[in-house]
Write a protein that binds this DNA or RNA. Sequence first.
DNA 1: CGCAGCCTTGACAAATGTCAACAAACGTGG
DNA 2: CCACGTTTGTTGACATTTGTCAAGGCTGCG
Lengths: 232, 232
Amino acid sequence: MRPENRRQVKELTLFRAMPDAAFDRLLAGSFFQRFPAHVVLIREGDLADFLHIVIDGGVELFSNWRDHETTISIARPISTFILAAVVKDAPYLMSARTLDASSILMIPSENIRTAMLDDSAFGVAMVDELAACFREIVKAQKNLKLRSGVERLANYLLRLDAEQRNDGRVVLPFEKKLLASLLNMTPENLSRAFATLKPYGVAVSAAAVEIANPGDLRRFAKPTPLIDDPKS
Amino acid sequence: MRPENRRQVKELTLFRAMPDAAFDRLLAGSFFQRFPAHVVLIREGDLADFLHIVIDGGVELFSNWRDHETTISIARPISTFILAAVVKDAPYLMSARTLDASSILMIPSENIRTAMLDDSAFGVAMVDELAACFREIVKAQKNLKLRSGVERLANYLLRLDAEQRNDGRVVLPFEKKLLASLLNMTPENLSRAFATLKPYGVAVSAAAVEIANPGDLRRFAKPTPLIDDPKS
DNA sequence: CGCAGCCTTGACAAATGTCAACAAACGTGG
DNA sequence: CCACGTTTGTTGACATTTGTCAAGGCTGCG
């Protein structure tokens, strides 16, 4: 692990307040490893031995039941995933695989749990992180239960635009198949959803999406901070 | 607040490890109040001034968008709700209303946050509670994305049976309209879903559901601990 | 070059939502 | 305790949404 990376991890709200010595203790026994794309890191049902942190690349969190599979979320640098399973010392509820070539830091669950007991500031940081994760997934749940597929897509595009250059020229960050799974639709349906948004000024060409008039799309999508705001 | 109730709240994993004196400090400025059925306790978007705890009765957590409404979860005694908003000092993401006449304990958010800083064991308990909440909603997400309406109903019935007497004679704990909203379907659709399960030995009469042969239903529902186990 | 996987489109099927009608259950005020 | 109106639950007919299957074009990679 390069000092550069160590610094980045230390910058996470989770670890920011931690004294350097404690942080070094936390990292004892950790692995920093580079993986190619499309490697399964975690299989749901396994016990949570390590807290994982994406340093570079991207990770898909997904789940299977019978012959269905669905994407729950995407973890981008620099962020943790499957924190809750680590805390509870319980089986992972989701599987994880790399999207692209990725660098992953793995910290033994045991280290996390003891750090929490030793350092109450770290405990507070964990509470903060978990609360944020919880709120994210509540929003995802609302998005899923209250909106149709087309509405989810429209709001997703608006969010992407805001995260990117806010000029109506959006680039999809991964393949449409995965986006479909994230938005809970089939790839065929996603294609049709894009077609449905055409009258609102949405034009797609491979990964590039142009939103001719964001106002039109916004009037259709009706975004609300209580679902679509990444913070709050 | 009766001593009986105080004892019950103290029994929550959240507060169990706390010294009595600290617990009393935590409760300073709290309200213990009895509400009739169908009273709105919390409106989504409002700021989280109080941590709420259901002592008696039941609370529905729900959310609106445009002219849709959906139930996110049901809080039963003795448990907290909207913990995450309190921690983040952020707006509630869900509204809450009483299902029946209910007793609610409300603890000022400020007290929770200071207790967390003072007492690292309480911090750990909070982490534990939030992680449990997170895992519950991940399961709900998987349930929603991976299963059809009929499958959700079948698994719900099996879970209810396990929670109740495990003899195939289940009593629905609230009206079907609410159950439909929780399972993300319309009331009409829920009626039809019950009819679909008839060949698997499910007979409904008002709130009483009889599962003639749980084995049959189980083979159809294919429950898995990674979605349906309340603990883990 | 040729294969494999992704994306799109069309035709069709299945699931789910909507609207209307009505019966049953419930709560309220007499 | 009854009568009344309101709400809930059910059913049918139908519309809409979403999923499935098949085909074909495109792209990227060996």
